[in-house]
Amino acid sequence: MIEIRNVYKSFGSTEVLKDVSLTVPPSRTTVVIGPSGSGKSTLLRCCNCLEIADRGEIRINHRTIIADGKPLPDKELNALRAETGMVFQSFNLFPHMTTVENVMRAPVVVRRMAKAEARELAMELLRKVGLGDKADVYPSTLSGGQKQRAAIARALAMKPKVMLFDEPTSALDPELVGEVLQVMKTLAEEGMTMMVVTHEMGFAREVADTVVVMADGRIVESGPPEQIFTNPTQERTRGFLRALVDGHLAGARPQPPADDPLEALPGNH
């Protein structure tokens, strides 16, 4: 469970988050969408104190991770971070370790798990994300989709109760997006609590319980995906979705623009 209460965050004189509140209930998936620079990444990063929120409170599984600019003391913060998996747009795999070492390292270092046990756990997770045969290669030899699946396995190795995804498929070639979304979908179905920044509308439709639209550091609208995509109440949501669809069509497959842009939103992956 993630509870974000009246969070503010500035970088220097730029206010990036302005009074953001949002709750992701247990075992639910919230998808955050919004234009570039609207503060999505910053919000996500505040949830495990990679950025320090200036004001407001954030609670993870009923534990306050930060309140009024004061994060938990280091030790407790580390423990809470260990239970909050984070997946980055740029994967951030450790290039000096093999795939399986990437996954088993944190359990060994943070949880003091025995190496053999950690390796077994890592292998199990790698098989789960379809990378059982890539355990002993270095990340540089993996495709983008494989890298991101390995990164997800690495986060899962800490047995997180909450997962944060920051545009996990934005750096991927289009044909590799599906395999990563599939893994995330499985996680959601298994009851993981997830907060996902993504512009994959098909995923949002299919997996999200709630879609949150951000613009300019604020939440402008939120609701179930059907409502946000088919019947948005805010003009900013409409404008964003239109721009997104135009971008999709321009980038992915050239075809004449649909009459109603919202109709043309890509469906399943």
């Binding site: 580390n78 260990a82 984070m86 980055f88 951030n92 450790f94 944190a106 270092v109």
Partner: peptide, 13 residues
């Protein structure tokens, strides 16, 4: 991102 990934897994600085 390397430091951030490590910290997000619960490692200390």
């Amino acid at each position: 991102g390397q430091m951030e990934a490590a910290r997000s897994l619960g490692m200390s600085y």
